[in-house]
């Protein structure tokens, strides 16, 4: 070992001291930036028409960030399916028991509905495209773990379908953004030409935000499913 553990510890403790010194000068943790950032709380409802302000920020104020984030997942899924397409699963060589299979099969529709709910109601209640997408991905994952190994394996979605769904999600996101260019004069601008802005707190409200939620939900769900399946198993 070129650098002994002692040297590393000394270095890190030095770093710790410096960081502590610096952090001590940060503004107090519960500091309220008065008018600067609570602008979202005060004006968010009027601006965007949704009550969930995290969703409002994710899909409207900083929708462009979310596009980038979706692109990151897209890239990760693409890369992993390129790098590590596994042909054989090293675990779970035998089929799972009947209890597990029937249990899972009966749970899956409920999970699906739950995921849909999180996505569709992301703008007025806790949740959103990302969380919902993860729940949807879990359906594919659970299904594949239960039925996709051993003999007689069945897959919920083929690899190509998942990729298509993911791509469609990303394309949808971009198209909605371009819609904004044509009807509102800016990329990703929240437009009410396609969807009514609706009344606050209703299911149909927030203009494009629910649709963006759906797009990102599809994208994240398919992306995570691809990542999981490639890391574990894929045909």
């Amino acid at each position: 070992m070129l650098y002994s553990r002692t040297v590393i510890i000394i270095m890190l403790s030095g770093l710790f001291l410096l960081a502590l010194l610096t952090f001590a000068e940060l503004p107090p943790i519960f500091y309220d930036f008065a008018d600067k950032t609570s602008v979202y709380i005060q004006e968010g409802v009027v601006d965007t028409g949704v009550t969930n302000q995290v969703t409002a920020i994710l899909f409207d104020y900083r929708g462009f960030d979310t596009l980038g984030e979706a692109t990151v997942i897209f890239a990760a899924a693409l890369i992993i399916s390129y790098f590590a397409p596994r042909k054989k699963a090293p675990m779970l060589g035998v089929r799972l028991g009947v209890l597990v299979r029937y249990g899972v099969a009966s749970i899956l529709p409920f999970i699906l509905i739950f995921g849909m709910y999180i996505i569709f109601f992301g703008h007025i209640s806790p949740g959103g495209g990302f969380t919902g997408g993860v729940v949807l991905a879990s359906i594919v994952i659970i299904f594949d773990i239960t039925f996709g190994f051993g003999q007689g394996r069945v897959h919920l979605l083929s690899r190509d379908t998942k990729k298509s769904i993911e791509s469609i999600g990303l394309v949808m996101f971009i198209l909605i953004g371009i819609w904004g260019v044509f009807f509102e004069g800016a990329f990703l601008a929240n437009s009410s030409t396609l969807v009514e802005k609706g009344t606050l707190g209703e299911f149909v409200s927030g203009g494009m935000i629910p649709i963006l939620n759906i797009a990102s939900g599809l994208k994240v769900g398919a992306g995570l499913a691809i990542i999981f399946n490639n890391l574990v198993k894929e045909n």
Binding site: L2, Y3, V7, I8, M11, L12, G14, L15, L18
Partner: peptide, 9 residues
């Protein structure tokens, strides 16, 4: 990584 940490320090 050690070089990096050392430089940061």
């Amino acid at each position: 990584l050690v070089w990096i940490v050392l430089t940061i320090l």
